[in-house]
Design a protein around this nucleic acid. Sequence first.
DNA 1: AAGCTAGGCGAAAACGTTTACGTAATTAAA
DNA 2: TTTAATTACGTAAACGTTTTCGCCTAGCTT
Lengths: 335, 335
Amino acid sequence: MAEVVNIKRLAQELNISIATVSKALNDSYEISLKTKNRVWTLAKELNYTPNPAASNLRSHKTKTVAVIIPCVANNFFSLSIKGIEEIARQYGYHVLIYQTHENIEAEVAFTNSLLNGRVDGILTSVSSSEYNSEYYTKLVKKIPLVFFDRVYENLDAVKVTTDDYEIAFQATEHLIECGCTKIAYLYGLENLPAGKARFAGYLDALKTHGIAADEQPVVKYQDDEELNLQHIKELLRKYKPDALFSSIEEFIIPAYCACREMNLKIPNDVKILSFSNLSTAKLLSPSLTTISQPAFEIGREAAKSLFKILNNKQLDDEQNIILKSVLTKRESTGC
Amino acid sequence: MAEVVNIKRLAQELNISIATVSKALNDSYEISLKTKNRVWTLAKELNYTPNPAASNLRSHKTKTVAVIIPCVANNFFSLSIKGIEEIARQYGYHVLIYQTHENIEAEVAFTNSLLNGRVDGILTSVSSSEYNSEYYTKLVKKIPLVFFDRVYENLDAVKVTTDDYEIAFQATEHLIECGCTKIAYLYGLENLPAGKARFAGYLDALKTHGIAADEQPVVKYQDDEELNLQHIKELLRKYKPDALFSSIEEFIIPAYCACREMNLKIPNDVKILSFSNLSTAKLLSPSLTTISQPAFEIGREAAKSLFKILNNKQLDDEQNIILKSVLTKRESTGC
DNA sequence: AAGCTAGGCGAAAACGTTTACGTAATTAAA
DNA sequence: TTTAATTACGTAAACGTTTTCGCCTAGCTT
């Protein structure tokens, strides 16, 4: 009863060899259906499940992937993980989580610690603190890797991103159509392609509409809510913009608070628009115009690509999967 | 160069036995400092990291824990995971994530799949669909397990919870002090101790203040936002309550929407108060009075307890760790 | 009847560690 | 000086699988 249940035990009870049991469990063609059935029924009866460590050791497959992200307590990333986990379940994979807290050293340390066979592949959305592409250039040769949202470009790896440039362009045009001419930019992810693309979309939209771009005031994100609040207030005081374009969700609270503290009415005095996956955007006061990324789908697509690679399936030609974001116009831009 | 780097390789290069290398790497007292240093420097030089599968197989330690929760895309759970992950890093543990989507069968299936030595312990917040304590009674004997927030009572396991009864009592009193007499209850987690405690706190507060409790209307949570909206609207129409006490975050959006659609002003016509970890509660229109649970700390405490168990440290007498929630009064209750 | 083929199975090595135990050399105790 | 204890290291088994290779039998083909 207390006896351990492993392949050896199954073999003994059935009076066959452990090799046969192993093959039967893996549905090998070498084993007759009759024997397979005997093995399967006994395995179920004894509640046998293979020991993962032994299996990994021998087969070099772990059925595990790692997700490395800045922080799980974030609407975008928690939704991505939800998507990843859902696909992982379908493929029978396990999901390990690592948070970098935007620290490149932690990111590298975690990643390195996974190269000893702990996982079969990695899904990552890189930290914003630095852009260290030498490291990742080497890394992608060592282990199957898929980037999502925050990527390194020009690498031989699948990258799942969104139409940052286009949607930022479109959103900026929306503000211009609402009559804004002094649109300030709340700048996040400045070291990353996503952040740069958003900013470029914003600048190009201004240029297209004949608004001098280099005079547009910018606040860069700091990891300190109070500091961001101060900077935005300063921005509002000095430049008196008629709109704030926030490129990351983290600016929403300080932006709203700054307007309140300075008695500026949204959207009459200042219009606000932000990249965000906040589910309560429509309940804010006033409701917030958002660019929402399909975080859940990004997670799903990234996971699907990785599992295709791990199962040696042909990837659909393209290494760059680009999903569309959605601009939802609400009261904060006068809609 | 391409040669694999494992203990055997280290042993060869240093002309010592693999046993010595293994012991040196594990800082065994049997090995001289001189030898240890030779091993450590070579290991660092060759970028050696032990193969986890081999190590697990032999030592029956995985340095891995599983977190089983309903859904990661939820403010409470994503914060909890953040806390768990942070402690796990300190202890050098890895964290696996599994989502049950409130499905008890998935929950049991995941848990069972972890009993073959894949993890050293489990952190779980159980699904709300059913209360199946026989299963968990057996389970806690098989593997170190810590419950957080959503627990099974009367089991020999650490449980990290919050003061649900007290804070619900206090919140209800707050509504009564605001002049409410017809307080409707939006009921979630009804199968779980947390849900029952919240409801009991609400009922007892009413009783204490001489309000007939059994006439209070209740809406029970369904996994369908549209349905919840309809039910709340129906509730508002039929019973004309002067307050809504929402026991879970998921009721916030339908509650606000219902009031808007029925042209009821918050807080003048209806006051609203909800359990919630929404970071933007203060930005809602109107800002929302919340009971926020210390989700991050709950995760941290749960993880700490588990790692103490795994490291055979003495647990501080008590198996029930109860943290305090915070009632933040805002405009939605007229504050 | 001899030779072949294929199907079904088993023996044994291997994966990379950890660890119980043995042993030699050195040191301490008698 | 002999004996006991200690230190430092090695041998080899074990963890539970997977997989290569080979064997045996039964059924065919000539």
